Measured scan of single mutants.
Amino acid sequence: RTSMTEEYRVPDGMVGLIIGRGGEQINKIQQDSGCKVQISPDSGGLPERSVSLTGAPESVQKAKMMLDDIVSR
């Protein structure tokens, strides 16, 4: 199975929601999608934060859908 890494961007203000209490939400995204999700520690003052998604292409797609779902709330 091919693994890929894709850079994705999320609004900086949503990072807390994506990570969740004690990392609960980000762990759920990783478990449900099978994709490794790494959020860059700092946006460098930019409105968006970089997130790197690593996994099989379908896992990366699923993680993106889950991120979009959180961001659109």
Rank of each mutant, 00 (worst) to 15 (best):
70 I>G: 03
56 A>V: 09
70 I>M: 09
10 V>D: 03
44 G>C: 09
37 V>M: 08
2 T>F: 14
1 R>F: 05
6 E>A: 12
12 D>E: 13
50 S>P: 07
3 S>A: 14
19 I>T: 14
66 M>H: 03
45 G>H: 13
54 T>K: 07
6 E>G: 06
38 Q>S: 11
30 Q>W: 03
23 G>P: 04
5 T>S: 09
34 G>K: 04
20 G>R: 03
8 Y>A: 03
3 S>Q: 15
40 S>L: 13
50 S>H: 14
58 E>H: 10
23 G>L: 07
8 Y>F: 09
40 S>C: 11
40 S>Y: 06
58 E>V: 06
52 S>R: 13
22 G>R: 12
10 V>H: 02
17 L>C: 08
12 D>V: 09
4 M>L: 13
11 P>M: 04
9 R>I: 15
51 V>M: 08
5 T>Q: 08
50 S>L: 10
8 Y>N: 02
10 V>T: 03
41 P>Q: 11
29 I>Y: 00
33 S>E: 01
21 R>G: 11
33 S>C: 11
43 S>A: 13
68 D>Q: 09
48 E>N: 07
46 L>G: 15
65 M>E: 14
42 D>V: 08
41 P>F: 08
52 S>V: 14
3 S>E: 15
18 I>F: 08
4 M>N: 07
69 D>M: 08
26 I>C: 02
9 R>V: 11
10 V>L: 15
65 M>S: 14
47 P>I: 07
72 S>F: 07
46 L>Q: 11
54 T>Y: 14
69 D>K: 11
7 E>L: 14
33 S>L: 02
61 Q>C: 07
3 S>H: 13
6 E>T: 15
42 D>G: 09
60 V>A: 01
48 E>I: 07
19 I>W: 08
27 N>W: 06
11 P>T: 07
10 V>S: 02
55 G>I: 00
57 P>Q: 08
42 D>C: 10
47 P>T: 12
59 S>E: 13
35 C>K: 02
58 E>R: 06
58 E>W: 04
65 M>L: 14
26 I>W: 06
5 T>K: 08
67 L>S: 02
36 K>R: 11
26 I>M: 11
6 E>V: 15
51 V>R: 00
9 R>T: 15
47 P>V: 07
59 S>P: 01
35 C>T: 03
53 L>S: 01
69 D>F: 05
48 E>P: 11
40 S>I: 10
12 D>A: 14
66 M>Q: 05
54 T>E: 08
32 D>G: 07
25 Q>E: 13
6 E>L: 15
30 Q>F: 05
46 L>D: 11
37 V>H: 00
52 S>A: 09
41 P>N: 08
4 M>C: 14
57 P>Y: 03
16 G>F: 03
3 S>V: 15
57 P>S: 05
51 V>Y: 03
53 L>H: 01
29 I>R: 00
16 G>D: 15
31 Q>D: 07
30 Q>N: 03
51 V>C: 06
29 I>G: 00
15 V>Q: 05
47 P>K: 12
36 K>Y: 11
1 R>V: 13
15 V>C: 06
13 G>R: 15
50 S>C: 14
57 P>L: 04
49 R>P: 10
38 Q>L: 09
2 T>P: 06
64 K>N: 01
61 Q>V: 09
66 M>D: 02
20 G>F: 00
63 A>E: 02
9 R>F: 15
17 L>K: 11
2 T>Y: 12
31 Q>G: 05
59 S>I: 01
43 S>Q: 12
73 R>D: 14
46 L>H: 08
16 G>M: 06
71 V>E: 03
41 P>G: 11
32 D>Q: 14
40 S>E: 13
69 D>N: 09
29 I>E: 01
63 A>L: 00
13 G>M: 11
69 D>L: 08
4 M>Y: 13
29 I>N: 00
3 S>K: 15
37 V>D: 02
44 G>D: 14
60 V>E: 01
69 D>Q: 09
22 G>L: 05
44 G>Y: 10
48 E>V: 09
63 A>K: 01
34 G>Y: 00
14 M>E: 06
35 C>V: 06
63 A>W: 00
59 S>M: 06
33 S>I: 03
59 S>H: 10
49 R>M: 08
63 A>C: 06
27 N>Y: 07
38 Q>V: 13
27 N>C: 07
18 I>G: 04
43 S>R: 12
66 M>C: 03
64 K>F: 00
18 I>E: 05
24 E>K: 10
10 V>E: 03
47 P>E: 11
9 R>Q: 15
41 P>L: 07
15 V>D: 06
68 D>S: 08
31 Q>N: 12
15 V>E: 12
48 E>M: 11
8 Y>H: 08
49 R>Q: 10
31 Q>S: 08
65 M>H: 10
57 P>K: 06
1 R>I: 15
2 T>M: 15
70 I>K: 04
41 P>E: 11
38 Q>R: 12
38 Q>K: 10
26 I>N: 01
70 I>E: 03
62 K>G: 03
52 S>T: 15
22 G>E: 10
68 D>F: 03
29 I>S: 01
41 P>Y: 09
9 R>E: 09
48 E>F: 09
60 V>S: 01
53 L>Q: 01
25 Q>S: 10
43 S>L: 08
6 E>H: 11
19 I>D: 07
62 K>V: 08
59 S>R: 04
28 K>Q: 10
29 I>K: 01
24 E>N: 09
22 G>W: 05
37 V>Y: 00
70 I>H: 02
13 G>L: 07
31 Q>R: 10
58 E>C: 05
35 C>I: 01
13 G>W: 09
62 K>R: 09
73 R>Y: 04
46 L>I: 08
60 V>I: 15
12 D>H: 14
20 G>I: 00
41 P>D: 14
33 S>N: 00
53 L>F: 03
58 E>S: 09
67 L>W: 00
61 Q>W: 07
57 P>T: 04
26 I>Q: 04
6 E>R: 10
61 Q>L: 09
7 E>I: 12
45 G>E: 11
13 G>P: 08
11 P>R: 05
70 I>R: 02
55 G>W: 00
28 K>R: 13
68 D>P: 00
12 D>R: 15
64 K>C: 02
42 D>I: 12
64 K>H: 03
17 L>M: 10
49 R>K: 09
31 Q>I: 08
51 V>F: 10
8 Y>E: 03
32 D>L: 13
63 A>H: 02
39 I>L: 10
55 G>H: 00
55 G>F: 00
65 M>D: 14
59 S>N: 11
13 G>E: 15
30 Q>Y: 00
6 E>W: 10
18 I>W: 02
59 S>Q: 11
67 L>V: 04
57 P>G: 03
30 Q>L: 05
39 I>V: 11
13 G>D: 15
10 V>A: 05
7 E>D: 12
21 R>T: 13
28 K>E: 05
10 V>Q: 01
69 D>H: 07
66 M>L: 11
57 P>A: 09
35 C>E: 02
21 R>F: 07
12 D>M: 09
19 I>N: 12
14 M>A: 09
7 E>T: 14
32 D>V: 11
47 P>R: 09
39 I>S: 02
32 D>N: 13
9 R>S: 12
9 R>L: 15
65 M>Y: 05
22 G>A: 08
66 M>R: 03
33 S>H: 01
19 I>M: 15
13 G>K: 15
66 M>V: 03
31 Q>T: 14
48 E>D: 12
62 K>S: 06
40 S>F: 05
41 P>T: 11
47 P>G: 13
24 E>D: 09
9 R>K: 15
73 R>C: 15
39 I>K: 01
20 G>Q: 04
73 R>I: 14
34 G>C: 04
13 G>A: 10
23 G>R: 09
73 R>H: 09
35 C>Y: 01
62 K>L: 07
40 S>Q: 13
70 I>T: 04
56 A>T: 15
29 I>M: 02
16 G>T: 09
59 S>F: 02
19 I>Q: 09
11 P>S: 04
